[in-house]
């Protein structure tokens, strides 16, 4: 479903494989391998060898971000992002390229099964389905309106 909504996707075996996959993706997009990363424990614990990384809030100069998805919804290919001190909101919207890491164990089949996993609501819950787009010029779709031009999901198969 995620590829149907014009996102790209790849699977890796463990969190340790994420940096290599991210590097390969950015080089493939002709973007320099510099990323701003959400300071979640999963992402800060990885060795980001080969990439220039910073753990802070994204600003408008950042071209690429790596984020950690709270969950994924299989029915619609949707990423679920829950804001917190480990997950800044702007990482999903400001950079041109957004790489989202999603653990396979965090997949739910539909939205109805997602809500019980989220306790008290944070400032934002972002349900993101594909890259930003607009059809405001003669009803023809153009990607990269205000949010990311491209959204790449790295699915981590291992449970740990």
């Amino acid at each position: 479903m995620h590829t149907r909504v014009q996102g790209t996707f790849e699977g890796v075996d463990s969190l340790q494989d994420v940096p290599l996959a991210a590097h390969r993706y950015l080089v493939g997009q002709s973007v320099s391998p510099e990323v701003v990363i959400s300071p979640s424990p999963e992402l800060t614990s990885i060795n980001w060898k080969g990439l220039k990384v910073e753990f802070r809030v994204a600003n408008r100069k950042d071209r690429s971000s790596v984020t950690m998805a709270f969950a994924g919804i299989a029915e619609t290919g949707t990423l679920v992002m829950v804001s917190s001190k480990q997950s800044p909101i702007n990482h999903h919207f400001l950079p041109e390229f957004n790489i989202a890491v999603l653990k396979q164990s965090k997949l739910v089949d539909c939205m109805e099964n997602l809500w019980p996993l989220i306790g008290e609501h944070p400032r934002t819950i972002n349900l993101i389905t594909g890259p930003s787009k607009t059809a405001d010029i003669e009803q023809t779709i153009v990607y990269g309106a205000h949010g990311p031009r491209a959204l790449h999901v790295i699915l981590v198969r291992s449970t740990c």
Binding site: R4, N126, L127, I128, T129, K133
Partner: peptide
């Protein structure tokens, strides 16, 4: 669309 790109709460 099966789902719009951004649904935010």
């Amino acid at each position: 669309q099966i789902m719009s790109v951004y649904t935010t709460l």
